[in-house]
């Protein structure tokens, strides 16, 4: 089995995730799109691990780390969204222009 279709699918998933981040209004939906991106990276790591037949399993271990970090990120991200929601009564990220001059 060739590695190219897997990598291209991962790239497509990555682009889909970026589309989602740019388009979605709801902050929770943006976080979902970020998960898509992380997932595409995972696919790449595992595929390369299989391609190289790495004895140290670097690719798999990296994807495990990424999954862990992603879990942490979702936890914090949702906590921030919750905080913002409490203060502004909305989860619409267009409303949060705190970084404006």
């Amino acid at each position: 089995m060739s590695i190219q279709p897997i990598l291209i699918a991962a790239a497509a998933l990555f682009s889909i995730g970026i589309y989602g981040i740019l388009v979605r209004r709801n902050a929770v939906m943006v976080l979902l799109s970020i998960e898509l991106i992380l997932n595409s990276v995972n696919i790449n790591f595992v595929a390369f691990n299989a391609m190289l037949s790495d004895v140290f399993l670097n690719g798999q271990i990296f994807s495990i780390f990424i999954i862990t970090i992603a879990a942490a990120e979702v936890g914090i991200g949702l906590a921030i969204v919750l905080m913002l929601f409490r203060n502004r009564e909305t989860a619409n990220i267009n409303e949060f222009d705190l970084m404006k001059w």
Partner: peptide, 17 residues
Amino acid sequence: VKLIQTGKTQQYLMYFL
């Protein structure tokens, strides 16, 4: 120049990309 700082995260990300 500060006017381009709209504070909208998605716009920033778009510029970045």
